[in-house]
């Protein structure tokens, strides 16, 4: 048994009056991949974004319940969102590289944190891009604009950018849904590489993707967590009827 790195208890989230999360209890062990699946609008993104306080940006959001990262309450009054997001990084659906060079994209977080040592930065760039499985494709034009890359390469550069700040947890919200199948499988391979070193939580609409890469899968519906289990149990032998219906494509 590895220790639980992230725990959510009785998590409710309201957009104004609307209750989007209705009491989620879900914990994550350190390392490995957890997939969040469920029909559109069930609250997967909302839940994911509570985990690094990304919802803070949206006005009129109310959150109750507790989320603890290594035992520390993420929503404690004195919690530092900047520090939290260094530990819990995020990759988005649309690749969003900054309009700078590939190199600058990857080291941005570190450089702003004050790292100046050129050798160290170079090393981090190479390591992160290798981890994100995009090094070979970009190593010869590190100083060209990241915007010139393909969508799949951009997305992997975005993953590298997150890795460069060495977070413990990486959140990904449908990272492959804007990409072609080849790029998607490259991202999947990247994630499989990373699963031994990072705790990865990924939202996906692609059930095959979940079954291919996730150790555990959580099924959400209407703002509730229906069930969570080893991925193969969810797909072969779900405990709840709703899960079975969803998996077998009867709705959603």
């Amino acid at each position: 048994m590895s220790e639980e790195i992230l725990t959510t208890q009785d998590l409710h989230l309201y957009y104004g009056e609307k209750e989007a999360l209705k009491g989620i209890n879900l914990n994550f062990d350190a390392k490995g991949i957890t997939a969040l699946i469920g029909p559109s609008g069930c609250g997967k993104s909302t839940y994911l974004r509570t985990l690094n306080r990304m919802n803070d940006l949206i006005p009129n959001v109310t959150i109750t319940g507790t989320i603890k990262f290594k035992g520390e309450n993420l929503y404690a009054p004195n919690a530092d969102t900047v520090e939290i997001r260094k530990e819990i990084g995020m990759v988005f659906q649309q690749p969003n590289p900054f309009p700078f060079s590939i190199y600058d994209n990857v080291i941005y977080g570190l450089r702003i944190a004050g790292e100046k040592d050129k050798e160290k930065l170079d090393a981090v760039v190479e390591k992160s891009l290798r981890q994100a499985a995009v090094w070979d494709e970009v190593k010869d034009h590190l100083h060209e604009s990241a915007l010139a890359l393909s969508g799949g390469q951009q997305q992997r550069v975005c993953i590298a950018r997150v890795l460069a700040v060495s977070p413990e947890i990486i959140l990904l919200d449908e990272p492959t849904s804007a990409l072609d199948p080849v790029s998607s499988s490259q991202i999947e391979a990247t994630l499989l590489n990373l699963r031994h070193d990072y705790t990865i939580i990924i939202v996906t609409h692609n059930l095959q993707q979940a079954s291919r890469i996730a150790d555990r899968t959580a099924f959400f519906m209407n703002g509730e967590l229906v069930e969570v289990d080893q991925t193969k149990n969810i797909f072969m032998n779900p405990a709840k009827k709703q899960t079975e219906d969803y998996i077998s494509g009867r709705f959603g």
Partner: peptide, 19 residues
């Protein structure tokens, strides 16, 4: 997305804006 990208890297609001 650019702003979220900055914040998600652990930049503060101000750093995201200025950098």
């Amino acid at each position: 997305e650019q702003r979220e990208g900055g914040l998600a890297l652990g930049l503060s609001r101000w750093e995201t804006i200025t950098r």
